[in-house]
């Protein structure tokens, strides 16, 4: 195989789990014969009759259904058409799925796929990044794959895990990223990855921002700096060890997130480094997030609202001068 996109990796992972595990089924809007709004389930309804089902526009009931099926021993995958709409199923996710094991001792193995993040023209209701909201709740595992390989292996892992998993797949990466082949071995979830080694600054990022950070790091090579990029991969659990080890090497930290800054993943990373690795820092830790407005529609506004390689590079230059 060659030229496997991030989106195709997600489709192939679902095809594989449907093939290998009779407990798996997929439920979501327009995912049956139509193959999904993004075609992440293309041809799967035909290949697996009765197991890839169109749902009514009822996010609450879709998640409730998945919880009931999980309790009965199934491994449901729910496709939210856009991450933004998961707020309509929020109650079931955080109050039922997340609490079930703690309250009752019964596992709730389900996966909720959230097509996340901004794309040009997406606007306020088709662009949101929800990872911090869900990571806030004990009992939910939150994955944010940044690569084709991770999109594939982490989705396989998500289905295998006995806990509810919020799988934040980035729409901007769907078609842009390609890989020649899909891996068989996997870095376990909850482990971050050093996406680029460096010695001057640690950039912690996840999902689409990993690629903006890598581009910025490349740009700063022209200034003679060597930037390390840590890809969190999973935001909950969060791999504080790898972050601290990186900061120990570089002494400086910039955290980049596409979501809003208030109470977000970037804030969490900085809080952990400040409390557990204060002595490692040579400068105040910094964060770069989206601007604090709803995600705007026009590409020019959107491109400024979110962190980009250029704004990450600017933040890095400022941090290096502190």
């Amino acid at each position: 195989m060659s030229n496997i996109t991030y989106l195709e990796a997600i489709r192939l992972a679902q095809q594989r789990v449907l093939h290998e595990d009779p407990r798996v089924f997929i439920y979501g809007q327009d995912i049956g014969v139509f193959g999904g709004a993004f075609k992440a389930t293309k041809n799967l309804a035909k290949e697996f009759p009765g197991r890839v089902l169109d749902a009514p526009i009822s996010e609450d009931a879709m998640v409730g259904l998945a919880i009931g099926a999980a309790v009965e021993g199934m491994r449901p995958i729910i496709e939210m058409q856009f991450a933004d709409f998961s707020t309509c199923g929020f109650n079931q996710i955080v109050n039922q799925a997340a609490t079930l094991h703690y309250r009752t001792g019964t596992s709730c193995p389900l996966v909720i796929r959230l097509p996340s993040g901004g794309t040009p023209g997406g606007g306020p209701f088709h662009s949101q990044s929800m990872e911090a909201i869900y990571a806030h709740y004990p009992g939910l595992i939150v994955m944010t794959p940044a690569t084709v390989e991770d999109a594939y292996t982490m989705l396989l892992e998500a289905v295998a895990i006995d806990d509810p998993v919020i799988f934040c797949e980035h729409k901007f990466l769907y078609y842009h990223l390609k890989a020649d082949r899909l891996p068989e071995t996997v870095l376990p979830f909850g482990k971050a990855r050093i996406a680029r080694q460096g010695r001057d600054v640690t950039v912690v990022a996840y999902s689409a921002m990993v690629h903006e950070a890598l581009a910025a790091a490349e740009e700063l090579t022209h200034d003679g700096y060597d930037i390390e990029v840590v890809d969190l991969r999973t935001v909950r659990p969060i791999d504080t060890d790898t972050i601290l080890a990186s900061v120990a090497r570089t002494g400086r930290l910039l955290v980049v997130g596409e979501a809003w800054p208030w109470g977000g993943v970037a804030a969490e990373v900085i809080s952990r480094v400040a409390t557990e690795g204060f002595g490692l820092l040579d400068a105040p830790p910094q964060r770069l997030n989206a601007k604090e407005t709803p995600v705007p529609y026009h590409p020019a506004l959107w491109g400024t609202h979110r962190p980009t390689a250029s704004s990450v590079a600017n933040s890095l230059r400022q941090l290096l001068e502190l």
């Binding site: 089924f25 009931a61 409730g64 009931g68 099926a69 309790v71 009965e72 199934m74 079931q92």
Partner: peptide
């Protein structure tokens, strides 16, 4: 919330 949860159990069966 429990209406759809029961539905899910029945779907599984």
């Amino acid at each position: 919330a429990m209406v759809s949860t029961v539905c899910g159990g029945l779907m599984a069966k």
